[in-house]
Structure formats: C-alpha cells, structure tokens
Design a protein around this nucleic acid. Structure first.
Lengths: 176, 176
DNA sequence: GGCTGTTAACCGTCCAGACGGTATAGTTTT
DNA sequence: AAAACTATACCGTCTGGACGGTTAACAGCC
C-alpha cells in the first residue's frame, strides 16, 4: 500500500475509534489527526473536510458490505453467522458500521445514512436468498440493529453472551 | 400546572423535538430556549446546565416507563401492542425514548444511557410476565430497538407499514 | 388599604474555549 | 524539479455557561 493510502486508512481508523469509544463529539479533526499520529494539516490534506471523512467511512462500509453479502448469501447457516457476528462486533466491518450508526444520528452526515440504508438493502437481499424467507430476513436485520444499539449504549453486559444462543434457538424453531 | 412547571415542560418538549428532528447538535441551549419561546437565561433558570436538561428527559422517561410497564404486563396481546407502538412511534413516550436514544450515543450524557438501561429492565420484566417467555421478550425488545433506529435513520419508508404485520405473523407462529 | 420585604420566574449580554477550515511554508519521495 | 505530503499559524463562528439585572406575585405588618 502506498504511504498516502496508509495514512488515509489510519485516519479513518482513528476517526472510527474516537466516534465509537467516545461519541460523535469526540471525533474532532484535531483529535482524529492526533490519534492517527498526523497533524491537523495532514488530515485535511487527505480529507478536505469533516464531511469527506464521513464519506470515507461510507465508502469503506460499501466495500465491506459487498463482501459480506457475497459471503452470506450462499451459506445455509447465514442466520446464525450473521447474528453471532452482530453480537461479537469485533471485525473491522462492525467498527465501521457502529461508527456510521452513531454519525447517522446527526442531521448533517446524510452520507452516513445513505450508506447504512444501502447496506441494509444488500443484507436483506443476501439473507432473503440464504434463508428463503424475506420476513425472517427482515426480522434478523432488525434484531441485529437492536443488538448493535444496545452494545453501543451499555457497557459489556448490555447483551448477554448467551442471548444469541437463545434467540437462535427461538428463530430456528420457526416453521419453514 | 404551575406556570414554572409548564415552562419546564415546554423546554423539555422543545429539546426533544430539536434532537429528534435535527440531531443532537441542533439541541443547543439557545435553540431550545427559542423553540420554547423562552430566553436563554430563562432556560438556565429552570435547567442549570445542559446535563440537567438531559436529566430532565431521563426522569420523564422513567415516569412514562413505569406506566408502560403496568399497562403491558397484564395484557395477553402485549407483544402485538408493544411492537405496533414501536413502529408508530407517535406517543409522547416514544418521542422521549427516541431523543434519549440519540443523546445516549454521546460520551457525555451518561444519564441518558442509565435511563435507557433501566427502561429496558422494566420492559423485559413486563413482557416476560405477559408472554411467559423471557427469550421471546428479549427478542421483542431488540426488534423494537432495531425499528426505532431505522425510523430515526431513514425517512418515512424506513420501516414499511406492513412489516410489523409480517413480523407478528412470524413471532406468533412460534411454539409456546 | 398602603408599605415593605421576599421570592420565583425570566431576560439580555458577555466571555473563554472549542471547532472546522484556510493559508502557507517546509520536507520527503519519485 | 515536480509531486506528494506534512506541519504551523491563524481566522471566524458557535457554544455552554456565568452574571447582573427586571418584573410580578405574595406575605406580613401597621
């Protein structure tokens, strides 16, 4: 990876982390730059504005999202994989998703909302394909969002580790 | 209601509306005061700080929450009522919930998160009681959160009107 | 019924600091 | 040497909050 590309990526990582760990307000230009080990001027060279930073995350999400879609749509155990990963929330994809979920709450940052809506369409298609049931797919997406939100809100025990087991037991007992 | 109490309530209404419609950043002291038809000084008389404003909403939620819990816990159709109202999101309770859900995303405003966690406990107890199934109750709460989030994100068609019908059809077909 | 003092409710102004963004000069890479 | 990148200094705006008034209702007292 070219050096510039690497710095861009580091900046996005830093922005993500600040937003996730300390909320949108902590994701200032100065803080993001410092967290990435770059000066503020350096940040603004790569991302000409705060909005460009958000846009950068949105593009990241889309790249991740396409890969996720491909990966899930062919698996018979897509539901389980999908929900378990929602609870874990430890992959790069999850971090981008969580950050954009927070950013999208603000009036500015339409880009974040657009990216999230687009991703939802991707996932709905993938899960519908894998599960053969659009309603169940929709339900899974809403549960996943709900889990993400509680994770973002509460501390560690916001979503009990075994909760996903019990939810899966419930959902897989559904008539198909 | 005493005049002071009325003004307090108007201020909370204004704060809620600004946060819900235009995001946390729009809920500034000046904007909230103006929206409520009060001067900034007047606002600060009733709520000594921005945090006190959030705390005011948190207390509102708790009052609402207790009433909701009582109302739901005895109904056999609690699941349907609960989910339908989550989608509609048009009662005063829903507005307070949505506002705190946005505020809770920010590092400051621990009060918002505390109130939301407490409410979750209330509802989990009420739904478990009404449904006789803690797992199904938990699932319903997560779905509800997911629906709230999508409502907050997307415009009008974020959550299709008939989605709740289909989800309910799915969930009520579960073995009990 | 007037006079006085008290208090709740409210207003408008001011300020320090934080923030997003610009300008520009300097450095490294190719 | 050009291009890519980085750092520093600075600017205008906005925000939360502090603060010193003002108004009106009310209570006690003579």
């Amino acid at each position: 990876m070219a050096k510039g590309e690497q710095t861009r990526s580091r900046l996005l990582d830093a922005f993500e982390e600040l937003v996730i760990e300390h909320g949108e307000r902590a994701g200032t230009l100065a803080a993001t730059a410092e967290h990435a080990g770059v000066s503020k001027g350096g940040l603004l060279y790569h991302f000409g504005s705060k909005d460009a930073l958000v846009q950068g995350l949105a593009e990241r999400l889309e790249v991740f999202g396409e890969a996720e879609q491909r990966r899930l749509s062919s698996r018979p155990d897509a539901l389980e994989v999908f929900l378990r990963e929602s609870v874990a929330a430890d992959r790069p994809f999850d971090r981008t998703y969580l950050a954009l979920l927070k950013l999208g709450q603000l009036d500015e940052h339409q880009a974040a909302r657009d990216a999230l809506v687009l991703l939802d369409d991707y996932f709905l298609a993938a899960l519908t394909d894998a599960l053969g049931d659009a309603d169940l797919a929709f339900l899974a997406l809403r549960v996943s969002d709900g889990i993400y939100v509680r994770t973002a809100l509460g501390g560690s025990d916001a979503v009990p580790a075994d909760a996903v087991d019990r939810i899966l037991a419930l959902l897989t007992s559904l008539p198909r």
